[in-house]
Structures are given as structure tokens and as C-alpha cells.
Amino acid sequence: MFVPIGSEQDFPSDYTLLLPAISVGNVGQLAIDLIISTLKIPKVGYFYTDCLVPMVGSNPYETDEENAKELCTNAEVYALPSQKLAVLQLRSLVIKKKSKSFRQALVSWIKRCAFARVILLSSCHAYHRDDTQLFGTPFRYLVTPALQKSVADVLKELEWKEMEKVSSYPGLNDNEKRVFIPGGGFTKRFYDDCCLEDLQMAVVLKFCSEGDNVPDAFSLLNQVNEWLHLVASTNGDVLAKWKAPGSWQLLFGSGLPAAIF
């Protein structure tokens, strides 16, 4: 359930919603962090749900002493009217057995807000790639039939690759194929839900492995930026235009005691 901070309950219907999947390496969540922090998108509300593990902290996107005191929760909604952009950030895990009701809550909110497009940033286990997937770009996309018509040309021009379908019964029957996103969390089922509900939704994902996934987040976002033009690209270093939030410090734990050296 969306709870606005102010009185504004709904979004204008031509907004694009960006959200992460909770998937391998948290790449989608890291990428969403970069978007919010770079574009300085203000928070407009909370996605209040019983399906996510509760967590709180101070403002992850702090820029000064005053806004560092704000509280952040496990699911928050940000909006940037100038770009007609709504962003949902998820900061904790989906509670076991609640994945279905979480997706239902998301779908009903998306339908109520009538977002023009929904884009899910996700990732997929790199070790599950087949021989052909090992070469070329590590990025894949999926679009629902409702969005297919309007974006097919753009994606073709960008030379993006659609996520390959795999046989349901490898070696026995290669005619029956299905979408398979191991390590993608709710990506596949959310995509299926959006197809069923006729929503205009796309998945953009990267093959990656668990580890330091900060570079994966940057590269996934650069890929997404080619399509959505969130940030004007410069001729210089492609990574420089995204601003990592302060909450990314100490990703690998605290400092070490000086006495051990």
C-alpha cells in the first residue's frame, strides 16, 4: 500500500516507474540507489507492506547535516516531476511465502497509478549462462506484449538482446520453451503477472555473480540510460556521471585495528 508523505495520493498517468528486483548481487537495488542519489530525487511516500523484512536507518542519500537525520525504511517511493519519473527503492528481503502477495500489492498499485511504463532492474546468475550467452553483451531485456509495440524499434536500434528462452525439458522436448531467470528473485513471476495484467513493463537485467557488485550496478545503469536518457551522456568517463550515495561506504565492514599491522 502506498502511503504518501504529503496529500498527493496519485501520480499523473504518464509517469515511468523504475524499481529493482531483489536479485543476485543486489544489482537492481544498487542501480536504483545511484539514480536517486544522482538525480537528487525527493521522497514522496512509503510502500507500506507486510511482505518485506523491516529495516530502518538514517538517510542513505544525505548531502548535509540536516537531511542526514531523516529516517529511511524498507520500501520508499521517490518522484521527479521534471522527468516524469517515479522510483521505488526496496531495501530488504521479501519474507518467505510472501512473494506472491508482494507482487499482487505491486501490480495493484501500478494499475491504480496507471504508470505509462514500468521498468524492473534485475540480475541473473552468470553461471547459469549457456554457451551462446557466454559471448557478447551481458545485458538482456524482456518486454511485455503491451509494451512491445511501442519500444520494439528503439530496442532494435540499440541492438539490445532479448533474454533467451530455455527448454522446459532439455534434451527431451526442445519445442516447449519458457523464460528462466535464476537468481532473479521475483523478476520472472512479476514479468508473468505484468503480461497477464496487460501492463507496459520491461525487465533489464545483467548476468553477474555475487561479490563486489558496484561495477555491475554502474554498467546496468549505463545500459538503461541508453534507452531512458535519465542523465545526459558526456564524452568523458561513462562512470563519472553517476553519484554513489554515502551509504555505500564501508561495504566490506569496519576499519581494521591498527595493532595488527
Binding site: Y46, M55, V56, G57, S58, P60, A68, L71, L251
Partner: peptide, 28 residues
């Protein structure tokens, strides 16, 4: 105040989330 990147979970996090969303003054 607890600074980033520290976070809290469990019952205190659930209570603080409830209070933040429904605009109840709360401190942990």
C-alpha cells in the same frame, strides 16, 4: 544519531517504520 551505513532491524525497525509511515513521533 546512528549514522549510515548502519541500519537497524527486528522489532525496533518494525515499530519505527510504523511510526514513520503514520507520522507518530518515535525515537529508538
Amino acid at each position: 544519531l546512528l549514522e549510515q551505513p548502519n541500519i537497524a532491524d527486528g522489532l525496533p525497525a518494525a515499530v519505527l517504520t510504523y511510526c514513520q509511515v503514520w507520522q507518530i513521533p518515535a525515537v529508538f
